[in-house]
Design a binder for these strands. Structure first.
Lengths: 187, 187
DNA sequence: TTTTATCTACCTAGTGATAGATAGGTAAAA
DNA sequence: TTTTACCTATCTATCACTAGGTAGATAAAA
Protein backbone atom coordinates (compact mmCIF):
# COMPACT_ATOMS: atom_id res chain seq x y z
CA UNK A 1 0.00 0.00 0.00
CA UNK A 2 2.67 2.44 0.99
CA UNK A 3 5.01 1.04 -1.67
CA UNK A 4 5.55 4.02 -3.95
CA UNK A 5 2.17 4.43 -5.58
CA UNK A 6 3.75 7.57 -7.05
CA UNK A 7 6.02 5.54 -9.37
CA UNK A 8 3.83 4.43 -12.30
CA UNK A 9 5.90 1.43 -13.41
CA UNK A 10 8.32 3.22 -15.78
CA UNK A 11 8.24 6.80 -16.84
CA UNK A 12 8.05 7.77 -20.49
CA UNK A 13 11.59 9.13 -20.69
CA UNK A 14 12.96 5.79 -19.55
CA UNK A 15 10.81 3.86 -21.99
CA UNK A 16 11.98 6.13 -24.81
CA UNK A 17 15.62 5.55 -23.88
CA UNK A 18 15.08 1.80 -23.62
CA UNK A 19 13.57 1.71 -27.07
CA UNK A 20 16.23 3.97 -28.57
CA UNK A 21 19.05 1.95 -27.08
CA UNK A 22 17.65 -1.25 -28.47
CA UNK A 23 17.16 0.34 -31.88
CA UNK A 24 20.68 1.81 -32.04
CA UNK A 25 22.23 -1.47 -30.98
CA UNK A 26 20.24 -3.28 -33.61
CA UNK A 27 20.44 -0.95 -36.57
CA UNK A 28 22.71 1.97 -35.83
CA UNK A 29 22.22 5.68 -35.37
CA UNK A 30 21.04 6.41 -38.90
CA UNK A 31 18.40 3.74 -38.92
CA UNK A 32 16.46 4.44 -35.78
CA UNK A 33 13.65 6.93 -35.99
CA UNK A 34 11.43 8.90 -33.67
CA UNK A 35 8.44 7.36 -35.41
CA UNK A 36 9.53 3.81 -34.70
CA UNK A 37 10.24 4.59 -31.08
CA UNK A 38 6.93 6.40 -30.67
CA UNK A 39 5.04 3.50 -32.18
CA UNK A 40 6.84 0.98 -30.02
CA UNK A 41 5.95 2.67 -26.75
CA UNK A 42 2.50 3.78 -27.87
CA UNK A 43 2.74 7.56 -28.18
CA UNK A 44 3.19 9.92 -31.15
CA UNK A 45 6.54 11.01 -32.53
CA UNK A 46 5.85 14.61 -31.57
CA UNK A 47 5.65 13.51 -27.96
CA UNK A 48 9.07 11.93 -28.21
CA UNK A 49 10.36 15.31 -29.35
CA UNK A 50 8.74 16.81 -26.28
CA UNK A 51 11.01 14.72 -24.06
CA UNK A 52 14.10 14.80 -26.31
CA UNK A 53 14.03 17.76 -28.71
CA UNK A 54 16.51 16.32 -31.22
CA UNK A 55 17.82 12.95 -32.22
CA UNK A 56 21.22 13.96 -30.89
CA UNK A 57 19.76 14.81 -27.49
CA UNK A 58 18.21 11.37 -27.29
CA UNK A 59 21.40 9.62 -28.34
CA UNK A 60 23.43 11.55 -25.78
CA UNK A 61 20.93 10.60 -23.08
CA UNK A 62 21.15 6.93 -24.05
CA UNK A 63 24.92 6.96 -24.18
CA UNK A 64 25.26 8.84 -20.90
CA UNK A 65 22.89 6.51 -19.10
CA UNK A 66 24.78 3.55 -20.52
CA UNK A 67 28.12 4.93 -19.32
CA UNK A 68 26.76 5.63 -15.84
CA UNK A 69 25.24 2.17 -15.48
CA UNK A 70 28.45 0.66 -16.78
CA UNK A 71 30.62 2.62 -14.39
CA UNK A 72 28.42 1.60 -11.50
CA UNK A 73 28.98 -2.06 -12.29
CA UNK A 74 32.77 -1.83 -12.24
CA UNK A 75 34.41 -2.62 -8.91
CA UNK A 76 37.14 -0.34 -7.61
CA UNK A 77 40.30 -1.68 -9.29
CA UNK A 78 42.22 -1.18 -6.07
CA UNK A 79 39.80 -3.23 -4.00
CA UNK A 80 42.05 -5.78 -2.28
CA UNK A 81 39.19 -8.21 -1.69
CA UNK A 82 38.82 -8.97 -5.40
CA UNK A 83 41.45 -10.72 -7.45
CA UNK A 84 42.35 -8.63 -10.52
CA UNK A 85 42.06 -11.78 -12.66
CA UNK A 86 38.46 -12.09 -11.53
CA UNK A 87 37.86 -8.42 -12.33
CA UNK A 88 39.09 -9.00 -15.85
CA UNK A 89 36.92 -12.06 -16.32
CA UNK A 90 33.96 -10.17 -14.97
CA UNK A 91 34.57 -7.41 -17.49
CA UNK A 92 34.82 -9.88 -20.35
CA UNK A 93 31.72 -11.74 -19.21
CA UNK A 94 29.75 -8.52 -19.03
CA UNK A 95 30.69 -7.70 -22.60
CA UNK A 96 29.88 -11.22 -23.71
CA UNK A 97 26.48 -11.08 -22.12
CA UNK A 98 25.62 -7.90 -24.02
CA UNK A 99 26.74 -9.06 -27.43
CA UNK A 100 26.25 -12.80 -27.43
CA UNK A 101 23.02 -13.21 -25.49
CA UNK A 102 21.35 -10.17 -27.00
CA UNK A 103 22.72 -11.24 -30.35
CA UNK A 104 24.03 -7.93 -31.66
CA UNK A 105 26.97 -5.59 -31.48
CA UNK A 106 27.55 -3.30 -28.54
CA UNK A 107 26.06 0.16 -28.33
CA UNK A 108 29.45 1.84 -28.55
CA UNK A 109 30.64 -0.23 -31.52
CA UNK A 110 27.51 0.71 -33.43
CA UNK A 111 27.83 4.39 -32.63
CA UNK A 112 31.52 4.29 -33.50
CA UNK A 113 30.70 2.87 -36.91
CA UNK A 114 28.23 5.70 -37.43
CA UNK A 115 30.58 8.34 -36.09
CA UNK A 116 30.50 10.40 -39.28
CA UNK A 117 26.74 10.87 -38.83
CA UNK A 118 26.79 11.82 -35.17
CA UNK A 119 26.30 15.28 -33.73
CA UNK A 120 29.44 16.31 -31.90
CA UNK A 121 27.78 15.93 -28.51
CA UNK A 122 27.16 12.23 -29.13
CA UNK A 123 30.76 11.76 -30.22
CA UNK A 124 31.90 13.27 -26.97
CA UNK A 125 29.67 11.02 -24.89
CA UNK A 126 31.08 8.10 -26.85
CA UNK A 127 34.69 9.13 -26.29
CA UNK A 128 34.03 9.41 -22.58
CA UNK A 129 32.75 5.86 -22.48
CA UNK A 130 35.92 4.53 -24.09
CA UNK A 131 38.00 6.47 -21.63
CA UNK A 132 36.07 4.95 -18.71
CA UNK A 133 36.79 1.47 -20.02
CA UNK A 134 40.43 2.14 -20.88
CA UNK A 135 41.34 3.74 -17.58
CA UNK A 136 39.60 1.05 -15.53
CA UNK A 137 41.34 -1.74 -17.47
CA UNK A 138 44.65 0.09 -17.15
CA UNK A 139 44.37 0.12 -13.39
CA UNK A 140 43.52 -3.56 -13.33
CA UNK A 141 46.55 -4.44 -15.48
CA UNK A 142 48.80 -2.34 -13.29
CA UNK A 143 47.79 -4.50 -10.36
CA UNK A 144 47.67 -7.79 -12.22
CA UNK A 145 51.01 -7.61 -14.01
CA UNK A 146 52.93 -5.02 -12.01
CA UNK A 147 53.22 -2.81 -15.05
CA UNK A 148 53.91 0.86 -15.50
CA UNK A 149 50.86 2.92 -16.37
CA UNK A 150 51.63 3.34 -20.05
CA UNK A 151 52.42 -0.35 -20.53
CA UNK A 152 49.22 -1.31 -18.75
CA UNK A 153 47.27 1.06 -20.96
CA UNK A 154 48.60 -0.69 -24.04
CA UNK A 155 47.34 -3.99 -22.68
CA UNK A 156 44.00 -2.37 -21.94
CA UNK A 157 43.79 -1.34 -25.58
CA UNK A 158 44.67 -4.83 -26.74
CA UNK A 159 41.93 -6.41 -24.66
CA UNK A 160 39.41 -3.80 -25.68
CA UNK A 161 40.27 -4.40 -29.34
CA UNK A 162 39.83 -8.15 -28.86
CA UNK A 163 36.42 -7.60 -27.31
CA UNK A 164 35.13 -5.25 -29.98
CA UNK A 165 36.64 -7.31 -32.75
CA UNK A 166 35.07 -10.45 -31.31
CA UNK A 167 31.66 -8.82 -31.49
CA UNK A 168 32.29 -7.99 -35.14
CA UNK A 169 33.23 -11.60 -35.85
CA UNK A 170 30.16 -12.94 -34.07
CA UNK A 171 27.86 -10.57 -35.89
CA UNK A 172 29.42 -11.19 -39.30
CA UNK A 173 29.50 -14.96 -39.13
CA UNK A 174 26.51 -15.59 -36.93
CA UNK A 175 28.63 -18.04 -34.95
CA UNK A 176 28.64 -17.08 -31.28
CA UNK A 177 31.52 -19.48 -30.61
CA UNK A 178 33.87 -16.92 -32.11
CA UNK A 179 33.56 -14.83 -28.99
CA UNK A 180 35.21 -17.33 -26.68
CA UNK A 181 37.70 -18.31 -29.36
CA UNK A 182 38.77 -14.72 -29.92
CA UNK A 183 38.98 -14.10 -26.19
CA UNK A 184 40.77 -17.33 -25.22
CA UNK A 185 44.02 -15.35 -25.23
CA UNK A 186 42.81 -13.51 -22.15
CA UNK A 187 41.26 -16.19 -19.97
CA UNK B 1 49.51 4.03 -78.73
CA UNK B 2 48.25 0.50 -78.83
CA UNK B 3 47.55 0.61 -75.11
CA UNK B 4 43.84 -0.14 -74.85
CA UNK B 5 42.20 2.82 -76.54
CA UNK B 6 38.98 0.90 -75.76
CA UNK B 7 39.31 1.71 -72.08
CA UNK B 8 38.18 5.35 -71.72
CA UNK B 9 39.99 6.06 -68.48
CA UNK B 10 37.43 4.34 -66.21
CA UNK B 11 34.03 3.07 -67.14
CA UNK B 12 30.95 4.29 -65.36
CA UNK B 13 30.30 1.06 -63.50
CA UNK B 14 33.74 1.26 -61.95
CA UNK B 15 33.35 4.88 -61.02
CA UNK B 16 30.00 4.09 -59.38
CA UNK B 17 31.57 1.29 -57.38
CA UNK B 18 34.50 3.48 -56.36
CA UNK B 19 32.16 6.15 -55.12
CA UNK B 20 29.88 3.67 -53.36
CA UNK B 21 32.78 1.95 -51.63
CA UNK B 22 34.13 5.24 -50.35
CA UNK B 23 30.68 6.24 -49.12
CA UNK B 24 30.00 2.95 -47.35
CA UNK B 25 33.37 3.00 -45.66
CA UNK B 26 32.80 6.54 -44.52
CA UNK B 27 29.18 6.46 -43.42
CA UNK B 28 27.77 2.96 -43.68
CA UNK B 29 25.18 1.25 -45.80
CA UNK B 30 22.22 3.30 -44.67
CA UNK B 31 23.83 6.65 -45.28
CA UNK B 32 24.99 6.38 -48.85
CA UNK B 33 22.55 7.33 -51.55
CA UNK B 34 22.19 6.95 -55.30
CA UNK B 35 21.83 10.71 -55.51
CA UNK B 36 25.15 11.40 -53.80
CA UNK B 37 26.96 8.89 -55.95
CA UNK B 38 25.37 10.25 -59.11
CA UNK B 39 26.35 13.79 -58.23
CA UNK B 40 29.89 12.80 -57.39
CA UNK B 41 30.55 11.16 -60.73
CA UNK B 42 28.51 13.62 -62.76
CA UNK B 43 25.46 11.65 -63.90
CA UNK B 44 21.85 11.42 -62.72
CA UNK B 45 20.64 9.04 -60.04
CA UNK B 46 18.37 7.29 -62.55
CA UNK B 47 21.48 6.40 -64.52
CA UNK B 48 23.02 4.76 -61.49
CA UNK B 49 19.90 2.61 -61.27
CA UNK B 50 20.49 1.68 -64.91
CA UNK B 51 23.82 0.10 -63.99
CA UNK B 52 22.79 -1.25 -60.58
CA UNK B 53 19.01 -1.66 -60.34
CA UNK B 54 18.88 -1.70 -56.55
CA UNK B 55 20.99 -0.53 -53.67
CA UNK B 56 21.58 -4.15 -52.73
CA UNK B 57 22.90 -4.96 -56.21
CA UNK B 58 25.39 -2.14 -55.94
CA UNK B 59 26.52 -3.17 -52.47
CA UNK B 60 27.01 -6.77 -53.56
CA UNK B 61 29.08 -5.59 -56.52
CA UNK B 62 31.25 -3.46 -54.26
CA UNK B 63 31.73 -6.24 -51.73
CA UNK B 64 32.46 -8.85 -54.39
CA UNK B 65 35.02 -6.66 -56.12
CA UNK B 66 36.62 -5.95 -52.77
CA UNK B 67 36.88 -9.65 -51.96
CA UNK B 68 38.37 -10.47 -55.36
CA UNK B 69 40.96 -7.70 -55.15
CA UNK B 70 41.78 -8.76 -51.62
CA UNK B 71 42.19 -12.39 -52.55
CA UNK B 72 44.45 -11.44 -55.42
CA UNK B 73 46.78 -9.63 -53.05
CA UNK B 74 47.24 -12.59 -50.71
CA UNK B 75 50.23 -14.79 -51.46
CA UNK B 76 49.79 -18.54 -51.48
CA UNK B 77 50.20 -19.51 -47.81
CA UNK B 78 52.22 -22.54 -48.86
CA UNK B 79 54.71 -20.54 -50.90
CA UNK B 80 58.07 -21.62 -49.49
CA UNK B 81 59.82 -18.50 -50.69
CA UNK B 82 57.95 -16.29 -48.26
CA UNK B 83 58.35 -16.49 -44.50
CA UNK B 84 54.94 -16.95 -42.82
CA UNK B 85 55.89 -14.24 -40.32
CA UNK B 86 56.27 -11.85 -43.25
CA UNK B 87 52.92 -12.95 -44.64
CA UNK B 88 51.28 -12.11 -41.33
CA UNK B 89 52.94 -8.72 -41.17
CA UNK B 90 51.93 -8.04 -44.73
CA UNK B 91 48.33 -8.87 -43.85
CA UNK B 92 48.38 -6.58 -40.84
CA UNK B 93 50.04 -3.79 -42.79
CA UNK B 94 47.45 -4.05 -45.53
CA UNK B 95 44.68 -3.68 -42.97
CA UNK B 96 46.48 -0.80 -41.31
CA UNK B 97 46.87 1.03 -44.58
CA UNK B 98 43.15 0.82 -45.21
CA UNK B 99 42.00 2.01 -41.83
CA UNK B 100 44.74 4.29 -40.58
CA UNK B 101 45.82 6.11 -43.71
CA UNK B 102 42.30 6.42 -45.12
CA UNK B 103 41.14 7.34 -41.64
CA UNK B 104 38.03 5.22 -41.39
CA UNK B 105 36.85 1.76 -40.55
CA UNK B 106 37.08 -1.08 -43.02
CA UNK B 107 34.39 -1.84 -45.56
CA UNK B 108 33.50 -5.12 -43.92
CA UNK B 109 33.34 -3.70 -40.39
CA UNK B 110 30.95 -1.03 -41.59
CA UNK B 111 28.73 -3.49 -43.42
CA UNK B 112 28.80 -5.84 -40.44
CA UNK B 113 27.57 -3.06 -38.20
CA UNK B 114 24.72 -2.43 -40.63
CA UNK B 115 23.95 -6.11 -41.07
CA UNK B 116 20.35 -5.77 -39.93
CA UNK B 117 19.71 -3.36 -42.81
CA UNK B 118 21.34 -5.41 -45.53
CA UNK B 119 19.57 -7.44 -48.19
CA UNK B 120 20.44 -11.08 -47.74
CA UNK B 121 22.65 -11.09 -50.82
CA UNK B 122 24.96 -8.50 -49.31
CA UNK B 123 25.16 -10.46 -46.09
CA UNK B 124 26.27 -13.49 -48.06
CA UNK B 125 28.96 -11.55 -49.92
CA UNK B 126 30.12 -10.29 -46.54
CA UNK B 127 30.27 -13.74 -45.00
CA UNK B 128 32.33 -14.97 -47.93
CA UNK B 129 34.87 -12.23 -47.36
CA UNK B 130 35.33 -13.24 -43.73
CA UNK B 131 35.76 -16.84 -44.78
CA UNK B 132 38.49 -15.84 -47.26
CA UNK B 133 40.39 -14.04 -44.51
CA UNK B 134 39.89 -16.74 -41.91
CA UNK B 135 40.97 -19.62 -44.09
CA UNK B 136 44.03 -17.80 -45.40
CA UNK B 137 45.14 -16.85 -41.89
CA UNK B 138 44.49 -20.40 -40.72
CA UNK B 139 46.86 -21.79 -43.32
CA UNK B 140 49.52 -19.26 -42.37
CA UNK B 141 49.27 -20.17 -38.68
CA UNK B 142 49.45 -23.87 -39.50
CA UNK B 143 52.80 -23.21 -41.14
CA UNK B 144 54.06 -20.66 -38.64
CA UNK B 145 53.27 -22.49 -35.43
CA UNK B 146 52.92 -26.09 -36.54
CA UNK B 147 49.35 -26.17 -35.35
CA UNK B 148 46.44 -28.40 -36.14
CA UNK B 149 43.85 -26.82 -38.42
CA UNK B 150 41.30 -26.09 -35.73
CA UNK B 151 43.86 -24.59 -33.37
CA UNK B 152 45.22 -22.42 -36.16
CA UNK B 153 41.73 -21.26 -36.99
CA UNK B 154 41.25 -20.08 -33.43
CA UNK B 155 44.41 -18.01 -33.73
CA UNK B 156 43.15 -16.65 -37.03
CA UNK B 157 40.00 -15.51 -35.27
CA UNK B 158 42.02 -13.89 -32.50
CA UNK B 159 44.10 -11.89 -34.95
CA UNK B 160 41.10 -10.91 -37.00
CA UNK B 161 39.35 -9.72 -33.85
CA UNK B 162 42.38 -7.66 -32.88
CA UNK B 163 42.44 -6.04 -36.30
CA UNK B 164 38.78 -5.17 -36.40
CA UNK B 165 38.77 -4.07 -32.78
CA UNK B 166 41.79 -1.90 -33.40
CA UNK B 167 39.94 -0.11 -36.18
CA UNK B 168 37.06 0.53 -33.78
CA UNK B 169 39.45 1.97 -31.20
CA UNK B 170 41.14 4.21 -33.76
CA UNK B 171 37.84 5.48 -35.07
CA UNK B 172 36.35 6.05 -31.62
CA UNK B 173 39.31 7.88 -30.08
CA UNK B 174 40.74 9.51 -33.18
CA UNK B 175 44.17 8.36 -32.04
CA UNK B 176 45.80 6.30 -34.79
CA UNK B 177 48.48 5.09 -32.36
CA UNK B 178 45.95 2.66 -30.96
CA UNK B 179 46.34 0.51 -34.04
CA UNK B 180 49.96 -0.42 -33.40
CA UNK B 181 49.35 -0.65 -29.67
CA UNK B 182 46.47 -3.07 -30.11
CA UNK B 183 48.43 -5.10 -32.65
CA UNK B 184 51.74 -5.19 -30.75
CA UNK B 185 50.74 -8.62 -29.49
CA UNK B 186 51.15 -9.96 -33.01
CA UNK B 187 54.30 -8.36 -34.31
C1' DT C 1 -14.19 27.96 -2.05
C1' DT C 2 -13.87 29.44 -6.29
C1' DT C 3 -11.21 31.51 -9.88
C1' DT C 4 -7.05 32.23 -12.46
C1' DA C 5 -2.68 30.89 -14.03
C1' DT C 6 0.80 27.72 -14.98
C1' DC C 7 2.78 23.31 -16.07
C1' DT C 8 3.01 18.56 -17.90
C1' DA C 9 2.38 15.31 -21.27
C1' DC C 10 0.39 14.31 -24.76
C1' DC C 11 -2.13 15.27 -29.39
C1' DT C 12 -3.21 16.68 -34.71
C1' DA C 13 -1.45 18.40 -38.64
C1' DG C 14 1.91 19.91 -41.16
C1' DT C 15 6.78 21.59 -42.99
C1' DG C 16 10.66 20.81 -46.28
C1' DA C 17 14.14 17.54 -47.33
C1' DT C 18 15.56 13.30 -48.94
C1' DA C 19 15.23 8.40 -49.86
C1' DG C 20 14.93 4.40 -53.48
C1' DA C 21 12.85 3.47 -57.47
C1' DT C 22 10.27 3.93 -62.10
C1' DA C 23 8.30 5.45 -66.67
C1' DG C 24 9.33 7.05 -70.76
C1' DG C 25 12.26 9.73 -73.94
C1' DT C 26 16.70 10.68 -76.74
C1' DA C 27 20.83 10.23 -79.27
C1' DA C 28 24.49 7.60 -80.71
C1' DA C 29 26.68 3.29 -81.53
C1' DA C 30 26.54 -1.56 -83.23
C1' DT D 1 16.93 -1.83 -86.21
C1' DT D 2 18.17 -2.93 -81.85
C1' DT D 3 20.95 -1.94 -77.89
C1' DT D 4 23.46 1.05 -74.87
C1' DA D 5 23.85 4.76 -71.84
C1' DC D 6 22.24 8.34 -70.53
C1' DC D 7 18.36 11.89 -69.62
C1' DT D 8 13.86 14.47 -67.50
C1' DA D 9 10.29 14.12 -64.59
C1' DT D 10 7.93 12.05 -61.18
C1' DC D 11 6.13 8.68 -57.54
C1' DT D 12 5.59 7.18 -52.96
C1' DA D 13 7.55 6.68 -48.52
C1' DT D 14 9.97 8.27 -44.76
C1' DC D 15 12.84 11.40 -42.29
C1' DA D 16 13.64 15.04 -38.32
C1' DC D 17 11.36 18.61 -36.66
C1' DT D 18 7.70 22.33 -35.46
C1' DA D 19 3.44 25.00 -34.60
C1' DG D 20 -0.32 25.13 -32.08
C1' DG D 21 -3.87 22.97 -29.34
C1' DT D 22 -5.91 20.35 -25.25
C1' DA D 23 -7.01 17.54 -21.02
C1' DG D 24 -5.72 17.17 -16.49
C1' DA D 25 -3.03 18.22 -12.43
C1' DT D 26 -1.24 21.75 -9.21
C1' DA D 27 -1.17 25.84 -6.86
C1' DA D 28 -1.55 30.48 -5.77
C1' DA D 29 -4.88 34.45 -5.57
C1' DA D 30 -9.53 36.31 -4.82
Amino acid sequence: MTTSSKQPAKDTKTRIMDSAERAIVQSGYGAFSFRDIAEEIGIKSASVHYHYPTKGDLAVAVMTRFTDEFRALLPDPKLASIDPRAMLNGFIDGFKKKIVEQHNMSLCTMLTADKHLLPESVGEALAEFYEVKLSWLTQVFVRLNNLADDQARVKAGQLLASLHGASVLVQATGEVDWFEKALSLWR
